[in-house]
């Protein structure tokens, strides 16, 4: 039975906030509003990370998801103006709801049957560090250094790739410049 304590109240309020705003992403008509609900969802997930005592991940979530990825999505919405009011449903709307419900049912049944608590110990794990940042830094530059360097190369390629995809032809650009000069 769930007793009434501060932690429980905070957990249930944050998780219901997150889930309600996540559902609103799918049900709201305007694409801009659904983007704002997506940002609320990111903030709620960051709150859950704080409850799980993952301070660095929570800050990274706020910076990367709620900060930069949502701004990228905002740019994409504004660069494609005709679609900015349209968050329409595809012809797979009902199958989508059905698949979501079936998946959720199966996985919740799996989690409740499997009883992770008995396997992994009911007690909260007491971590001995004040914050996780120092340990994460040591792990990133020690055990996982190859993956860390590969991630930086991946980011560089993604940056160059995105710019070279979106950039228009250089000759078109020069022609438009010439036309402007003539006017």
């Amino acid at each position: 039975m769930i007793e009434f304590s501060t932690y429980n109240v905070i957990f249930f309020s944050i998780s219901s906030f997150t889930l309600i705003s996540a559902i609103s992403v799918g049900l709201v008509n305007s694409l801009m509003r659904s983007l704002f609900f997506l940002i609320l969802t990111f903030i709620g997930v960051a709150g859950l990370f704080i409850l799980l005592s993952a301070d660095f991940i929570a800050i990274a979530q706020l910076l990367i998801y709620a900060g930069s990825i949502s701004i990228l999505l905002l740019f994409a919405v504004m660069l494609t103006p005709e679609s900015s009011t349209n968050n329409g449903n595809s012809k797979y709307f009902l199958p989508g709801i059905l698949i979501g419900i079936i998946f959720t049912y199966l996985m919740v049944a799996l989690v409740t049957i499997f009883q992770f608590n008995q396997l992994s110990g009911i007690h909260l794990k007491k971590l001995d560090f004040d914050n996780t940042i120092a340990s994460i830094g040591e792990l990133l530059l020690g055990k996982y250094i190859i993956a860390f360097e590969l991630a930086s190369i991946l980011l560089l390629f993604a940056l160059i790739g995105a710019i070279s995809i979106v950039r228009s032809n250089e000759s078109d650009f020069l022609i438009s410049l010439n036309n402007k000069d003539k006017k």
């Binding site: 996540a22 799918g26 997506l38 994409a76 329409g88 989508g96 979501g100």
Partner: peptide, 26 residues
């Protein structure tokens, strides 16, 4: 799991590419 199910629904049920990207983020 609930968040994943909602993301799956957003991915499948929307026809706008930006909405689908939002579903993937979820």
């Amino acid at each position: 799991i609930l968040l994943f199910g909602i993301g799956l629904f957003v991915c499948i049920g929307k026809k706008n590419i930006i909405s689908i990207v939002m579903g993937i983020e979820l």
